[in-house]
Design a protein around this nucleic acid. Structure first.
Lengths: 160, 160
DNA sequence: TAGAAAAAGTATCCATGTAAACAATAATTC
DNA sequence: GAATTATTGTTTACATGGATACTTTTTCTA
């Protein structure tokens, strides 16, 4: 439980982390920042950003989704959602339509350009996802995904 | 593999995510942002930030650690490390000493004030870590931590 | 031992993300 | 049916975090 932490370049002195290694939040953060680094390394030569690509991916699967729904699903706060969508609209990847039955809300659709863009990077996107599995076999990966999924959906979503 | 995603407030239309649900990176991100939200909810009434508290925690366990070592261990980039430490020094939680044997580097030590601050929030910090376990039993939790640890240390750290 | 290369931190600028206050529309309530 | 409340999205102001280029010190090399 108090084992030293084998750090990155391994030439470093070992660092004790104590109870942190039993903290899901901490371990999630560590793994997640590494995953991000990996993504940016893979898409280094492009302008592609993980959030944007994920958003296009979801809109491709769910045409006409409302902005709020996407935000809640992907855990993106409204203010940030606005900025993301504004950029995607400016690049003409996404189209916004106000449905007549509820004129507060906004429905989102991929344009042809947006679909082309997504398709251009689709394979690379999936390749990154596969590459993240380094070190885990299929069974371990399945277990990990199942546990993360359980965690994600049961975590207390509200307590106002 | 293409099951709809049970979103937060559950009053939402279900959103299809396709291959995203088999992406570790994506699932990590989802869980991690939720964990962050939880942290901020718990420490709402304070100025405590997760990164800062983690840093103090690590310095308490490893007095005299070099700035670079901490950064590599916690996956914090040098530029950000500087800013974090500057604030902790300004608040007099941390002391910087330049060791004579290598005057490029900086050793970090907790001050008495820093230790007091850490101790004041230690129990709450651990409580958040426990709370993150919602929905998983002890065995599942152990498995999850083991898998995350494996992932964290085997992920390709360099390819320049 | 000079000169080049590497390592540790810092400063500046930019991208990402949030909180709080606001505007517009819809749903409730009296 | 007018007044209140809730929902949806935007704006503004700020916090977090990274890339790049730079300074200082150390180490390596010729």
């Amino acid at each position: 439980m108090n084992a030293p932490f084998p750090t990155g370049p391994s030439t470093d002195e070992p660092v004790a982390l104590g109870a942190l290694t039993s903290s899901v939040g901490f371990m999630l953060r560590m793994c997640q920042t590494r995953a991000y680094d990996q993504f940016f390394r893979e898409f280094q030569d492009t302008e592609v950003r993980p959030g944007e690509l994920t958003l296009l991916w979801v809109l491709d699967l769910n045409p006409g989704l409302k902005q709020g729904s996407v935000g809640r699903t992907l855990n993106i706060k409204p203010a940030h959602m606005t900025k993301l969508i504004q950029r995607l609209v400016r690049e003409e990847f996404v189209e916004r339509r106000v449905p007549p039955e509820d004129r507060r809300s906004i429905q989102l659709y991929l344009t042809e350009t947006g679909r082309d863009y997504l398709n251009r990077y689709r394979e690379r996107f999936l390749a990154v996802h596969r590459a993240e599995r380094v070190g885990l076999n299929d069974a371990e990966m399945a277990t990990l995904l199942a546990l993360l999924s359980k965690l994600n959906f049961q975590e207390a979503p509200e307590c106002p």
